[in-house]
Nucleic acid binder design. Structure first.
Lengths: 215, 215, 215, 215
DNA sequence: TATGAATGAGCCTTCATTCAT
DNA sequence: AATGAATGAAGGCTCATTCAT
């Protein structure tokens, strides 16, 4: 994707520390000085390798988006032969896993969450490269469960309900920590959360076909 | 709550424009220059009235948190006589309404969303003043529905599932706009969303008691 | 012309040292750091008083252009009753005087010369504010001498011949110094130069009417 | 003149683009990056071939000064048998031609003009190599016309008057363009200018011998 | 002979804050 | 109660130059 695959040591070090700091501080608060200091590189190296701060951010985004979605694709563990319910469980597990801090690189999920609520000019890249494909996959699963077409409004609403639950544990992490210290903090609970959300959502969609829900 | 109730015209104007700009730009990107310019006040006015930028932010937060939660309390429309299902519906409607931009002041929801994912040092004030009481109220409702105690782990999980769905439409607004332009944009859909989330969640919790969920 | 006539001490000091340094180094080589250091002011003062480096340059240009042309107007010493020959002599004397370093401020002529050969974006201001009126005045005098209209091509050529001679002593000052050290350096020779150029030019235009000059 | 005559392709390409860019931007505004990019060379090539930026500038100056003054010498078209008046005409034509952009390389005149009003440390090279010989030649012609010695003060004044007129069309080109758009722009007017300046100057010097000019 | 990578100095600008009135 | 003026720290970026190969 990037024509410059030439990875000098400095270039790689900068991208790594940049990702970490961008994730921690956000694009505008992060300073290239800090990034370079942590990378053990000279300030001008950013200009040399990436043009400017924006270029660096973009490179980090593209590079790690690719890497993460190769390691943890949305359809991780999903096979065509599975029943829709099993597909949903696999999807949710993959989704949650991808968002936890112990995946590699550990800060990418946080950087993504930042773009979610406070999108920068680079947001569209994420939407098209990561979010839309992921959402489409979910919509297909939900559509199969509901017996409707993927672009049906109810399918979308239910998909969003599912995504919303998953995202809550990432986006609202600061809140959760304060409300229930040490209860939901460590990542070892992915299985429990997967089961909960899967069960909650399957039930949530269960009798939707029979009930007339519109006012 | 604020000991300085002496509200000079300048002081009020600053707080108003500060809220708007803080919500738009975030604490660190917002500049006191812009705030003062929009308020028609002198730059030094901020330090004079609020000590420093932090003090201004704090004042804004406290002032409008109080105002908003008096106008749209979490238990808005909830009466003791209602059935838990109705209480839940009322809670969700109140929650969604509070998060939409047409409440007053129109920017407060956005400022809150910002603190959610990117908490500043002022975050604890919001947690204790707004979030915890609100969550507690929901936990009580869910507990009644599930027939469990409010601090039960399953109650918490289900509560978070509900909150997660609601927050999605605020936190992920930029995503939704790009994925489905014009389909979920205007605020007139609160009723539909309320029905969907309520229905989805009630079903999601429905057979939880009977089914053995852990594998 | 400038709405900000409020002249704080710092503001004035900056404009003065700015003019001097801009004249010495040119716009891009001059640094605001040097300017402020010489003015005994803080770096940020430039931003506060003039917006940015460009704004400072512009203010300096406008301010001193006005000042110089009030002190040494192109028609200095010219009265309607004079004969054209006397008008020309007065014009040339005024022109030369304005360009010498002992007028106030001493660096303005140099700054102007710079814009002449290396115009910046601010050049048009000088053309319209100083150069065009001055040239027009000369063209009128020459037209009277030649008995032609001011926009006649020959009038223009002769006017340019006159201006060219005057400018030479400013624009080519570095050359003159090297070719004839100490012979044309001091400003006390304005009278001599005035006489020479006036005489040379009057003669140059003298028989133009009779001779068929075009090939 | 240059001891390094070993002209690798890169070295030549750099000198060419360097000349162009130096002429356009001036020494300090021109960047070695731009020069090398336009030459299709590596950044480090400048330091490798010329030591540093100054060395490059110097090489360009020397090289093209030599080239230009071999192609268009000041005495171009002047023979010993001519009358002084004809010599003057030939000198002026050669001078004007050399300054117009259609000589080769097209940017050298501009670079020279720059050094005239804003001399760098390399100026002395130009003075001794180009300017002084050229001026001396003119002084000889003028001396013959006036019947005085070449180092006579009046000879110098008149020579400067002549040079001043010629230079005006180069040094003040930006002004002329703005004052009279499209009237003096193209280079096809060299003959007309030659005639005008020659005639104007010959007349200017004509009766100088008889008239008592000092007051 | 030539180059990709790296460097340190310096520039303009912006910012929150303080001073003096 | 309020303000115009001034300040120091810091940020992103550019530049000529040097290093290592």
């Amino acid at each position: 994707m990037d024509k410059k695959k030439n990875a000098s040591r400095t270039r790689l070090a900068i991208m790594e520390s940049a990702g970490k700091i961008f994730a921690e501080e956000g694009f505008s608060k992060a300073t290239v000085r800090d990034i370079c200091r942590e990378a053990g590189a000279n300030i001008a190296a950013v200009n040399y390798h990436f043009g400017d701060k924006k270029g660096l951010y973009l490179s980090v985004l593209k590079h790690y988006q690719e890497m993460v979605f190769q390691t943890y694709p949305p359809d991780f563990g999903i096979t065509a032969a599975q029943k829709p319910e099993e597909k949903l469980r696999a999807y949710i597990r993959s989704f949650l896993t991808r968002m936890m801090d112990d995946v590699h690189p550990p800060w990418f999920a946080r950087l993504l969450a930042r773009e979610f609520t406070e999108p920068t000019w680079a947001f569209d890249i994420l939407v098209e490269g990561s979010i839309r494909p992921s959402f489409q996959l979910l919509a297909d699963i939900v559509a199969a469960i509901l017996g409707k077409k993927p672009d049906d409004r109810r399918v979308r609403l239910c998909s969003m309900s599912i995504v919303g639950q998953c995202l809550y544990f990432r986006h609202s992490n600061p809140v959760i920590i304060r409300l229930f210290p040490r209860e939901f903090s460590d990542a070892g609970q992915i299985e429990e959360l997967t089961e909960h959300i899967t069960f909650f959502s399957l039930n949530g969609m269960a009798k939707a076909k029979t009930k007339n829900k519109r006012r």
